[in-house]
Nucleic acid binder design. Structure first.
Length: 490
RNA sequence: GGUCCUGUGGCCGAGCGGCUAGGCAGAGCUCUGCAAAAGCUCGUACAGCGGUUCGAAUCCGCUCGGGACCUCCA
Protein backbone atom coordinates (compact mmCIF):
# COMPACT_ATOMS: atom_id res chain seq x y z
CA UNK A 1 0.00 0.00 0.00
CA UNK A 2 1.37 3.38 -0.98
CA UNK A 3 1.78 5.79 1.84
CA UNK A 4 3.49 8.48 -0.18
CA UNK A 5 2.79 11.95 1.04
CA UNK A 6 2.47 14.92 -1.26
CA UNK A 7 2.40 18.32 0.35
CA UNK A 8 1.46 21.59 -1.27
CA UNK A 9 4.49 23.79 -0.90
CA UNK A 10 3.73 27.49 -0.90
CA UNK A 11 7.25 28.15 -2.10
CA UNK A 12 7.10 25.97 -5.21
CA UNK A 13 3.33 26.43 -5.60
CA UNK A 14 3.11 22.73 -6.23
CA UNK A 15 2.27 19.49 -4.53
CA UNK A 16 5.72 18.04 -3.93
CA UNK A 17 6.58 14.56 -2.71
CA UNK A 18 7.53 14.77 0.93
CA UNK A 19 10.93 13.39 1.79
CA UNK A 20 12.53 14.41 5.06
CA UNK A 21 15.97 15.98 5.02
CA UNK A 22 17.11 13.41 7.53
CA UNK A 23 14.84 10.35 7.60
CA UNK A 24 13.24 9.27 9.88
CA UNK A 25 13.45 12.65 11.60
CA UNK A 26 11.13 15.47 10.66
CA UNK A 27 11.38 19.06 11.85
CA UNK A 28 8.09 20.91 12.01
CA UNK A 29 7.77 24.53 13.05
CA UNK A 30 4.47 26.34 13.43
CA UNK A 31 4.03 30.00 14.31
CA UNK A 32 2.14 30.13 17.59
CA UNK A 33 -0.09 32.80 19.01
CA UNK A 34 0.73 36.26 20.28
CA UNK A 35 -0.61 36.09 23.79
CA UNK A 36 -2.14 39.50 24.30
CA UNK A 37 -5.74 38.23 23.92
CA UNK A 38 -7.75 35.02 23.93
CA UNK A 39 -7.21 32.78 20.93
CA UNK A 40 -10.31 32.82 18.80
CA UNK A 41 -11.74 30.04 16.72
CA UNK A 42 -9.93 31.08 13.57
CA UNK A 43 -6.61 30.73 15.35
CA UNK A 44 -7.69 27.35 16.58
CA UNK A 45 -8.32 26.11 13.07
CA UNK A 46 -4.68 26.57 12.16
CA UNK A 47 -3.38 24.86 15.26
CA UNK A 48 -5.85 22.02 14.84
CA UNK A 49 -4.77 21.47 11.29
CA UNK A 50 -1.08 21.39 12.10
CA UNK A 51 -1.88 19.03 14.92
CA UNK A 52 -3.19 16.70 12.22
CA UNK A 53 0.02 17.16 10.25
CA UNK A 54 2.00 16.26 13.36
CA UNK A 55 -0.24 13.28 14.06
CA UNK A 56 -0.16 11.94 10.52
CA UNK A 57 3.60 12.24 10.15
CA UNK A 58 3.94 10.44 13.46
CA UNK A 59 1.45 7.82 12.30
CA UNK A 60 3.56 7.23 9.20
CA UNK A 61 6.44 6.39 11.50
CA UNK A 62 8.45 9.61 11.39
CA UNK A 63 10.14 10.92 14.49
CA UNK A 64 8.74 14.41 14.49
CA UNK A 65 10.07 17.30 16.49
CA UNK A 66 7.20 19.77 16.56
CA UNK A 67 8.10 23.27 17.65
CA UNK A 68 5.39 25.85 18.22
CA UNK A 69 6.37 29.14 19.77
CA UNK A 70 4.60 31.51 22.11
CA UNK A 71 5.03 35.12 21.08
CA UNK A 72 5.24 36.93 24.37
CA UNK A 73 6.99 40.06 23.18
CA UNK A 74 4.49 42.54 21.83
CA UNK A 75 4.88 43.71 18.30
CA UNK A 76 4.58 47.40 17.67
CA UNK A 77 1.11 48.42 16.55
CA UNK A 78 0.94 50.26 13.30
CA UNK A 79 -1.08 53.15 14.60
CA UNK A 80 1.24 54.21 17.36
CA UNK A 81 4.57 55.80 17.01
CA UNK A 82 5.43 55.80 20.67
CA UNK A 83 6.82 52.33 21.05
CA UNK A 84 3.69 50.88 22.61
CA UNK A 85 3.28 47.22 21.85
CA UNK A 86 0.22 45.01 22.02
CA UNK A 87 1.13 43.28 25.22
CA UNK A 88 2.23 46.48 26.91
CA UNK A 89 -0.94 48.16 25.79
CA UNK A 90 -3.11 45.36 27.11
CA UNK A 91 -1.15 45.38 30.36
CA UNK A 92 -2.01 49.05 30.88
CA UNK A 93 -5.61 48.40 29.99
CA UNK A 94 -5.98 45.55 32.45
CA UNK A 95 -3.63 47.14 34.96
CA UNK A 96 -1.42 44.10 35.05
CA UNK A 97 2.24 43.39 34.54
CA UNK A 98 3.03 42.49 30.92
CA UNK A 99 4.07 39.03 32.04
CA UNK A 100 0.74 38.62 33.81
CA UNK A 101 -0.96 39.32 30.51
CA UNK A 102 1.29 36.81 28.84
CA UNK A 103 0.55 34.18 31.47
CA UNK A 104 -3.19 34.80 31.45
CA UNK A 105 -3.62 34.36 27.73
CA UNK A 106 -1.10 31.56 27.50
CA UNK A 107 -3.19 29.68 30.03
CA UNK A 108 -6.33 30.15 27.98
CA UNK A 109 -4.50 29.10 24.85
CA UNK A 110 -3.24 25.92 26.47
CA UNK A 111 -6.65 25.14 27.90
CA UNK A 112 -8.24 25.44 24.46
CA UNK A 113 -5.55 23.34 22.81
CA UNK A 114 -6.27 20.67 25.38
CA UNK A 115 -10.04 20.88 25.00
CA UNK A 116 -9.73 20.52 21.24
CA UNK A 117 -7.59 17.47 21.82
CA UNK A 118 -4.41 18.80 20.23
CA UNK A 119 -1.18 17.11 21.14
CA UNK A 120 1.32 19.32 22.90
CA UNK A 121 4.25 20.30 20.71
CA UNK A 122 7.63 18.75 21.43
CA UNK A 123 9.01 22.15 22.31
CA UNK A 124 7.10 25.34 23.00
CA UNK A 125 9.68 28.10 23.22
CA UNK A 126 8.93 31.68 24.14
CA UNK A 127 10.38 34.77 22.53
CA UNK A 128 11.38 36.28 25.87
CA UNK A 129 13.26 33.11 26.71
CA UNK A 130 15.42 33.44 23.63
CA UNK A 131 16.75 36.98 23.75
CA UNK A 132 20.35 35.80 23.60
CA UNK A 133 19.72 33.72 20.50
CA UNK A 134 17.95 36.61 18.82
CA UNK A 135 20.74 39.04 19.62
CA UNK A 136 23.30 36.55 18.35
CA UNK A 137 21.38 36.20 15.13
CA UNK A 138 21.29 39.94 14.63
CA UNK A 139 25.06 40.05 15.12
CA UNK A 140 25.51 37.43 12.43
CA UNK A 141 23.31 39.31 10.02
CA UNK A 142 25.25 42.49 10.74
CA UNK A 143 28.52 40.63 10.16
CA UNK A 144 27.27 39.42 6.82
CA UNK A 145 26.51 43.00 5.85
CA UNK A 146 22.74 42.63 5.56
CA UNK A 147 21.74 44.97 8.37
CA UNK A 148 22.68 48.39 9.74
CA UNK A 149 22.30 50.34 12.96
CA UNK A 150 20.51 53.66 13.39
CA UNK A 151 20.03 55.23 16.81
CA UNK A 152 20.22 51.95 18.66
CA UNK A 153 17.88 50.16 16.27
CA UNK A 154 18.97 47.55 13.76
CA UNK A 155 17.27 47.28 10.39
CA UNK A 156 17.44 44.57 7.83
CA UNK A 157 18.98 45.89 4.63
CA UNK A 158 16.66 44.68 1.90
CA UNK A 159 18.64 46.37 -0.88
CA UNK A 160 21.88 44.70 0.12
CA UNK A 161 20.07 41.39 0.47
CA UNK A 162 18.42 41.69 -2.91
CA UNK A 163 21.78 42.20 -4.56
CA UNK A 164 22.65 38.64 -3.60
CA UNK A 165 19.42 36.74 -3.00
CA UNK A 166 15.89 36.91 -4.34
CA UNK A 167 13.40 38.62 -2.05
CA UNK A 168 9.65 38.05 -2.18
CA UNK A 169 9.72 34.54 -3.62
CA UNK A 170 7.28 33.08 -1.12
CA UNK A 171 4.62 35.75 -1.31
CA UNK A 172 5.15 36.51 -4.98
CA UNK A 173 5.69 40.13 -4.24
CA UNK A 174 8.11 42.41 -5.94
CA UNK A 175 9.63 45.29 -4.13
CA UNK A 176 8.97 47.88 -6.82
CA UNK A 177 5.23 47.26 -6.68
CA UNK A 178 5.24 47.26 -2.92
CA UNK A 179 6.70 50.72 -2.87
CA UNK A 180 3.65 52.37 -4.36
CA UNK A 181 1.46 51.29 -1.51
CA UNK A 182 3.56 51.48 1.59
CA UNK A 183 2.27 53.59 4.37
CA UNK A 184 4.46 55.70 6.55
CA UNK A 185 5.21 53.59 9.57
CA UNK A 186 7.15 53.85 12.73
CA UNK A 187 10.85 54.38 12.08
CA UNK A 188 10.32 54.99 8.39
CA UNK A 189 12.60 57.97 8.48
CA UNK A 190 15.37 55.93 10.05
CA UNK A 191 15.36 53.33 7.33
CA UNK A 192 17.59 53.44 4.30
CA UNK A 193 14.94 51.77 2.20
CA UNK A 194 11.18 51.62 2.68
CA UNK A 195 11.04 47.81 2.69
CA UNK A 196 13.70 47.41 5.38
CA UNK A 197 12.32 45.91 8.56
CA UNK A 198 13.43 46.09 12.17
CA UNK A 199 15.53 43.35 13.74
CA UNK A 200 15.95 45.30 16.94
CA UNK A 201 14.18 48.41 18.14
CA UNK A 202 15.59 50.85 20.66
CA UNK A 203 13.12 51.20 23.52
CA UNK A 204 11.59 54.57 24.21
CA UNK A 205 11.64 55.59 27.91
CA UNK A 206 8.02 54.53 28.51
CA UNK A 207 8.38 51.15 26.86
CA UNK A 208 7.96 48.45 29.50
CA UNK A 209 9.25 45.28 27.87
CA UNK A 210 12.96 45.90 27.26
CA UNK A 211 16.21 44.01 27.26
CA UNK A 212 19.86 45.03 27.17
CA UNK A 213 21.77 44.52 23.95
CA UNK A 214 25.05 45.61 22.36
CA UNK A 215 23.07 48.49 20.84
CA UNK A 216 21.40 49.64 24.01
CA UNK A 217 18.12 48.72 25.66
CA UNK A 218 15.40 47.62 23.33
CA UNK A 219 13.36 44.72 22.10
CA UNK A 220 13.52 42.33 19.16
CA UNK A 221 11.79 42.97 15.86
CA UNK A 222 8.68 41.51 14.39
CA UNK A 223 9.98 38.44 12.66
CA UNK A 224 13.16 37.52 14.41
CA UNK A 225 11.96 35.16 17.11
CA UNK A 226 10.77 32.47 14.71
CA UNK A 227 14.05 32.53 12.83
CA UNK A 228 16.07 32.32 16.00
CA UNK A 229 14.04 29.59 17.66
CA UNK A 230 13.52 27.41 14.62
CA UNK A 231 17.26 27.52 13.96
CA UNK A 232 18.05 26.67 17.54
CA UNK A 233 15.77 23.66 17.79
CA UNK A 234 15.49 22.40 14.23
CA UNK A 235 18.73 23.52 12.65
CA UNK A 236 19.61 25.87 9.83
CA UNK A 237 17.42 23.86 7.50
CA UNK A 238 14.36 21.87 8.42
CA UNK A 239 11.43 20.17 6.76
CA UNK A 240 8.15 21.97 7.32
CA UNK A 241 7.20 25.45 8.44
CA UNK A 242 3.53 26.16 8.90
CA UNK A 243 1.27 29.01 9.81
CA UNK A 244 -1.82 30.89 8.78
CA UNK A 245 -2.14 32.32 5.30
CA UNK A 246 -2.03 35.82 6.69
CA UNK A 247 1.51 35.25 7.94
CA UNK A 248 2.93 34.69 4.49
CA UNK A 249 3.78 38.31 4.07
CA UNK A 250 5.60 39.95 5.61
CA UNK A 251 6.29 37.52 8.45
CA UNK A 252 7.41 34.39 6.61
CA UNK A 253 9.05 36.31 3.83
CA UNK A 254 11.15 38.10 6.41
CA UNK A 255 12.02 34.86 8.13
CA UNK A 256 13.41 33.51 4.89
CA UNK A 257 15.43 36.68 4.40
CA UNK A 258 16.80 36.62 7.95
CA UNK A 259 17.84 32.99 7.82
CA UNK A 260 19.32 33.31 4.39
CA UNK A 261 21.22 36.43 5.38
CA UNK A 262 22.49 34.64 8.43
CA UNK A 263 23.31 31.21 7.05
CA UNK A 264 23.43 31.63 3.31
CA UNK A 265 20.49 29.36 2.61
CA UNK A 266 16.73 29.23 2.92
CA UNK A 267 15.62 27.58 6.16
CA UNK A 268 12.63 25.57 5.07
CA UNK A 269 11.91 22.83 2.56
CA UNK A 270 8.12 22.92 2.76
CA UNK A 271 6.15 26.04 3.56
CA UNK A 272 2.56 25.28 4.45
CA UNK A 273 -0.21 27.81 4.88
CA UNK A 274 -3.66 27.11 6.20
CA UNK A 275 -6.56 29.22 5.09
CA UNK A 276 -8.86 31.42 7.10
CA UNK A 277 -12.05 30.66 8.93
CA UNK A 278 -14.72 33.04 7.70
CA UNK A 279 -18.03 34.25 9.04
CA UNK A 280 -20.53 35.28 6.39
CA UNK A 281 -17.72 35.18 3.88
CA UNK A 282 -15.39 37.43 5.83
CA UNK A 283 -12.24 36.53 7.66
CA UNK A 284 -12.82 35.96 11.35
CA UNK A 285 -10.89 38.58 13.20
CA UNK A 286 -11.05 40.58 16.34
CA UNK A 287 -11.14 43.93 14.65
CA UNK A 288 -14.18 43.02 12.55
CA UNK A 289 -16.02 41.92 15.67
CA UNK A 290 -17.02 38.63 14.10
CA UNK A 291 -14.77 36.32 16.06
CA UNK A 292 -15.92 33.70 18.53
CA UNK A 293 -14.01 32.56 21.49
CA UNK A 294 -14.01 28.79 21.77
CA UNK A 295 -15.82 28.77 25.11
CA UNK A 296 -18.57 30.97 23.65
CA UNK A 297 -19.07 28.43 20.90
CA UNK A 298 -19.24 25.52 23.34
CA UNK A 299 -21.85 27.30 25.42
CA UNK A 300 -23.71 28.86 22.50
CA UNK A 301 -23.14 32.16 24.22
CA UNK A 302 -22.81 34.59 21.33
CA UNK A 303 -25.37 36.61 19.32
CA UNK A 304 -24.46 34.77 16.12
CA UNK A 305 -24.94 31.35 17.67
CA UNK A 306 -28.23 29.49 17.93
CA UNK A 307 -26.86 26.81 20.22
CA UNK A 308 -23.66 25.40 21.59
CA UNK A 309 -21.42 22.86 19.90
CA UNK A 310 -18.94 20.58 21.58
CA UNK A 311 -15.21 20.78 20.85
CA UNK A 312 -15.21 17.44 19.05
CA UNK A 313 -18.03 18.54 16.77
CA UNK A 314 -16.13 21.71 16.00
CA UNK A 315 -13.03 19.70 15.23
CA UNK A 316 -14.99 17.38 12.95
CA UNK A 317 -16.51 20.41 11.25
CA UNK A 318 -13.05 21.80 10.55
CA UNK A 319 -11.84 18.44 9.24
CA UNK A 320 -14.64 18.40 6.69
CA UNK A 321 -13.00 21.25 4.81
CA UNK A 322 -9.58 21.21 3.20
CA UNK A 323 -7.01 23.30 5.04
CA UNK A 324 -6.16 25.41 2.01
CA UNK A 325 -9.77 26.48 1.48
CA UNK A 326 -11.53 29.08 3.48
CA UNK A 327 -14.18 27.55 5.67
CA UNK A 328 -17.36 29.46 6.29
CA UNK A 329 -18.89 29.26 9.70
CA UNK A 330 -22.64 28.97 10.15
CA UNK A 331 -25.12 27.42 12.57
CA UNK A 332 -26.48 25.24 9.80
CA UNK A 333 -23.07 23.91 8.84
CA UNK A 334 -22.19 23.17 12.46
CA UNK A 335 -25.48 21.37 13.00
CA UNK A 336 -24.91 19.25 9.91
CA UNK A 337 -21.43 18.41 11.14
CA UNK A 338 -22.83 17.48 14.53
CA UNK A 339 -25.22 14.94 13.03
CA UNK A 340 -22.55 13.49 10.82
CA UNK A 341 -20.08 13.28 13.67
CA UNK A 342 -22.57 11.43 15.84
CA UNK A 343 -23.41 8.96 13.09
CA UNK A 344 -19.73 8.35 12.47
CA UNK A 345 -18.97 7.77 16.13
CA UNK A 346 -22.03 5.60 16.69
CA UNK A 347 -20.87 3.30 13.91
CA UNK A 348 -17.35 3.27 15.28
CA UNK A 349 -18.60 2.13 18.65
CA UNK A 350 -20.95 -0.43 17.06
CA UNK A 351 -18.21 -2.44 15.38
CA UNK A 352 -17.92 -4.77 18.37
CA UNK A 353 -21.63 -5.61 18.15
CA UNK A 354 -21.37 -6.90 14.60
CA UNK A 355 -21.71 -10.60 14.00
CA UNK A 356 -18.97 -11.80 11.67
CA UNK A 357 -19.72 -13.77 8.54
CA UNK A 358 -17.57 -16.46 7.01
CA UNK A 359 -17.42 -14.85 3.61
CA UNK A 360 -17.57 -11.29 2.35
CA UNK A 361 -17.63 -9.33 -0.85
CA UNK A 362 -16.43 -6.14 0.76
CA UNK A 363 -12.98 -4.86 -0.10
CA UNK A 364 -11.60 -3.38 3.07
CA UNK A 365 -8.04 -3.25 1.77
CA UNK A 366 -9.19 -0.93 -0.98
CA UNK A 367 -10.95 1.24 1.57
CA UNK A 368 -7.85 1.49 3.69
CA UNK A 369 -5.74 2.34 0.65
CA UNK A 370 -8.16 5.13 -0.21
CA UNK A 371 -7.81 6.57 3.26
CA UNK A 372 -4.05 6.73 2.93
CA UNK A 373 -4.37 8.12 -0.57
CA UNK A 374 -6.59 10.92 0.74
CA UNK A 375 -4.16 11.89 3.47
CA UNK A 376 -1.23 11.45 1.10
CA UNK A 377 -2.77 14.00 -1.22
CA UNK A 378 -1.91 17.08 0.79
CA UNK A 379 -3.78 16.05 3.92
CA UNK A 380 -7.18 15.84 2.26
CA UNK A 381 -9.28 15.23 5.37
CA UNK A 382 -12.65 15.87 3.64
CA UNK A 383 -12.02 12.95 1.32
CA UNK A 384 -10.76 10.87 4.20
CA UNK A 385 -14.04 11.50 6.00
CA UNK A 386 -16.02 10.58 2.91
CA UNK A 387 -14.15 7.26 2.81
CA UNK A 388 -14.79 6.71 6.48
CA UNK A 389 -18.51 7.18 5.89
CA UNK A 390 -18.20 4.27 3.49
CA UNK A 391 -16.93 2.27 6.44
CA UNK A 392 -19.90 3.53 8.47
CA UNK A 393 -22.25 2.16 5.84
CA UNK A 394 -20.56 -1.23 5.93
CA UNK A 395 -20.61 -1.40 9.70
CA UNK A 396 -24.26 -0.41 10.01
CA UNK A 397 -25.18 -2.81 7.27
CA UNK A 398 -23.36 -5.58 9.05
CA UNK A 399 -25.12 -4.76 12.27
CA UNK A 400 -28.46 -5.06 10.47
CA UNK A 401 -27.41 -8.34 8.92
CA UNK A 402 -27.54 -6.82 5.43
CA UNK A 403 -23.80 -6.73 4.89
CA UNK A 404 -21.47 -9.67 5.33
CA UNK A 405 -18.14 -8.90 6.95
CA UNK A 406 -15.64 -11.46 8.19
CA UNK A 407 -14.11 -11.33 11.64
CA UNK A 408 -10.81 -10.23 10.12
CA UNK A 409 -12.52 -7.48 8.20
CA UNK A 410 -14.22 -6.21 11.33
CA UNK A 411 -10.88 -6.08 13.08
CA UNK A 412 -9.44 -4.27 10.11
CA UNK A 413 -12.30 -1.76 10.04
CA UNK A 414 -11.87 -1.10 13.71
CA UNK A 415 -8.18 -0.51 13.16
CA UNK A 416 -8.78 1.85 10.23
CA UNK A 417 -11.35 3.86 12.15
CA UNK A 418 -9.14 4.04 15.20
CA UNK A 419 -6.13 5.12 13.20
CA UNK A 420 -7.79 7.80 11.18
CA UNK A 421 -10.49 9.04 13.49
CA UNK A 422 -8.62 8.99 16.76
CA UNK A 423 -4.91 8.95 15.96
CA UNK A 424 -4.77 11.07 12.82
CA UNK A 425 -7.71 13.46 13.07
CA UNK A 426 -7.62 13.52 16.84
CA UNK A 427 -11.34 12.96 17.31
CA UNK A 428 -12.66 11.48 20.50
CA UNK A 429 -15.81 9.47 20.98
CA UNK A 430 -18.66 11.51 22.45
CA UNK A 431 -19.17 10.09 25.92
CA UNK A 432 -15.84 8.39 26.23
CA UNK A 433 -14.78 10.65 29.05
CA UNK A 434 -17.46 9.62 31.51
CA UNK A 435 -18.08 6.24 33.07
CA UNK A 436 -21.15 4.80 31.37
CA UNK A 437 -20.96 1.37 32.94
CA UNK A 438 -23.40 2.02 35.76
CA UNK A 439 -25.99 3.83 33.62
CA UNK A 440 -25.76 0.99 31.14
CA UNK A 441 -26.58 -1.57 33.80
CA UNK A 442 -29.56 0.47 34.94
CA UNK A 443 -30.77 1.02 31.42
CA UNK A 444 -30.62 -2.71 30.76
CA UNK A 445 -33.17 -3.10 33.54
CA UNK A 446 -35.35 -0.44 31.96
CA UNK A 447 -35.29 -2.19 28.61
CA UNK A 448 -36.14 -5.46 30.32
CA UNK A 449 -39.24 -3.93 31.85
CA UNK A 450 -40.21 -2.35 28.56
CA UNK A 451 -39.81 -5.66 26.80
CA UNK A 452 -42.20 -7.26 29.28
CA UNK A 453 -44.73 -4.47 28.78
CA UNK A 454 -44.57 -4.82 25.04
CA UNK A 455 -45.05 -8.56 25.25
CA UNK A 456 -48.20 -7.89 27.24
CA UNK A 457 -49.10 -5.30 24.58
CA UNK A 458 -49.23 -2.65 27.25
CA UNK A 459 -47.95 -0.03 24.84
CA UNK A 460 -49.33 2.87 26.82
CA UNK A 461 -47.11 2.10 29.78
CA UNK A 462 -44.18 1.30 27.51
CA UNK A 463 -44.54 4.69 25.88
CA UNK A 464 -44.93 6.38 29.22
CA UNK A 465 -41.62 4.93 30.27
CA UNK A 466 -39.94 6.12 27.08
CA UNK A 467 -41.49 9.57 27.39
CA UNK A 468 -40.32 9.86 30.94
CA UNK A 469 -36.73 9.44 29.75
CA UNK A 470 -37.31 11.58 26.72
CA UNK A 471 -38.31 14.52 28.88
CA UNK A 472 -34.95 14.12 30.60
CA UNK A 473 -33.07 14.23 27.28
CA UNK A 474 -32.45 10.52 27.15
CA UNK A 475 -33.64 8.78 24.01
CA UNK A 476 -34.58 5.12 24.08
CA UNK A 477 -34.32 3.15 20.87
CA UNK A 478 -35.67 -0.37 20.53
CA UNK A 479 -33.54 -2.99 18.87
CA UNK A 480 -33.95 -6.71 18.36
CA UNK A 481 -31.73 -7.52 21.33
CA UNK A 482 -33.29 -5.00 23.67
CA UNK A 483 -32.48 -1.36 23.32
CA UNK A 484 -30.01 1.47 23.03
CA UNK A 485 -29.97 4.83 24.67
CA UNK A 486 -28.29 8.13 24.00
CA UNK A 487 -28.18 11.60 25.39
CA UNK A 488 -30.08 13.99 23.21
CA UNK A 489 -28.67 17.42 22.61
CA UNK A 490 -31.09 20.25 23.07
C1' G B 1 -4.30 50.94 -6.86
C1' G B 2 -0.93 46.33 -6.88
C1' U B 3 -0.47 40.86 -6.01
C1' C B 4 -3.18 36.49 -5.43
C1' C B 5 -7.33 33.30 -4.38
C1' U B 6 -12.36 32.11 -5.19
C1' G B 7 -17.87 31.47 -7.16
C1' U B 8 -20.35 23.66 -7.21
C1' G B 9 -27.42 21.23 -6.07
C1' G B 10 -31.82 23.87 -0.04
C1' C B 11 -27.01 24.23 3.33
C1' C B 12 -21.71 22.90 4.22
C1' G B 13 -18.07 21.11 1.26
C1' A B 14 -14.51 17.55 -2.17
C1' G B 15 -13.16 17.01 -7.15
C1' C B 16 -9.95 20.54 -11.18
C1' G B 17 -10.02 17.35 -18.76
C1' G B 18 -13.75 11.56 -19.76
C1' C B 19 -15.26 7.72 -14.06
C1' U B 20 -21.27 8.03 -7.89
C1' A B 21 -17.46 12.66 -3.78
C1' G B 22 -19.24 12.85 1.20
C1' G B 23 -22.19 14.97 5.20
C1' C B 24 -26.80 17.58 6.55
C1' A B 25 -31.74 18.62 4.87
C1' G B 26 -35.95 16.58 1.39
C1' A B 27 -38.97 12.29 -1.19
C1' G B 28 -40.11 6.96 -1.52
C1' C B 29 -39.29 1.91 0.28
C1' U B 30 -37.64 -2.01 3.97
C1' C B 31 -37.62 -3.10 9.12
C1' U B 32 -41.14 -1.84 13.16
C1' G B 33 -47.07 -1.99 18.01
C1' C B 34 -45.60 3.21 17.47
C1' A B 35 -41.21 5.96 17.37
C1' A B 36 -36.12 6.24 16.66
C1' A B 37 -31.95 4.19 14.43
C1' A B 38 -30.13 1.75 10.27
C1' G B 39 -30.19 -0.03 5.15
C1' C B 40 -31.86 0.60 0.03
C1' U B 41 -33.59 3.95 -3.89
C1' C B 42 -34.29 9.03 -5.80
C1' G B 43 -34.50 14.74 -7.05
C1' U B 44 -32.48 19.44 -7.43
C1' A B 45 -25.24 21.31 -9.56
C1' C B 46 -20.94 23.12 -11.26
C1' A B 47 -21.99 32.29 -11.68
C1' G B 48 -22.73 34.17 -17.02
C1' C B 49 -20.98 34.51 -22.08
C1' G B 50 -17.49 33.02 -25.67
C1' G B 51 -13.27 29.77 -27.05
C1' U B 52 -9.79 25.25 -27.08
C1' U B 53 -10.93 19.85 -27.31
C1' C B 54 -13.54 13.80 -29.85
C1' G B 55 -15.00 15.33 -24.79
C1' A B 56 -14.94 20.90 -19.71
C1' A B 57 -17.54 21.99 -13.35
C1' U B 58 -12.29 20.99 -14.50
C1' C B 59 -7.97 24.53 -19.59
C1' C B 60 -8.08 29.81 -21.98
C1' G B 61 -10.48 34.81 -22.53
C1' C B 62 -14.03 38.34 -21.12
C1' U B 63 -18.13 39.91 -17.78
C1' C B 64 -20.35 39.91 -13.03
C1' G B 65 -20.04 38.56 -7.74
C1' G B 66 -17.10 37.20 -3.06
C1' G B 67 -12.52 37.15 -0.35
C1' A B 68 -7.21 37.49 1.36
C1' C B 69 -2.58 40.03 1.47
C1' C B 70 0.00 44.71 0.61
C1' U B 71 -0.16 47.29 8.48
C1' C B 72 -0.09 43.39 14.09
C1' C B 73 -3.05 39.14 12.80
C1' A B 74 -3.65 31.76 12.51
Amino acid sequence: MSKELYIYNSLSRNKDLFQPLNTPHVGLYVCGPTVYANVHLGNCRTFMFFDVVYRYLTHLGYKVRYVRNITDVGHITSTFDDGVDRIGQQARLEQLEPMEIVQKYTNYFHEMMRVFNNHSPSIEPTATGHMIEQIEMIKKILDQGFAYEVNGSIYFDVQAYRAKYPYGELSGRNVEELYENTRTLDGQDEKKFFADFALWKAASPEHIMRWPSPWGEGFPGWHLECSAMSTKYLGEQFDIHGGGMDLKFPHHESEIAQNTACCGKGPVKFWMHSNMLTVNGQKMSKSLGNSFLPHELFAGDHPLLEKGFGPQVVRFFMMQAHYRSTLDFSNEALSAAEKGYERMMAAYMAIDECKPATQSEADIDALEAKCYAAMGDDFNTPILIAELFEAVRLINGCKNGQQALTADQLVQLKRIMTHFLRDVMGLQTPESAGNVELPNIMMDAVFEVRKGLKEKKDYATADMLRDAFSSRNIVLKDTKEGGEWTYEKK
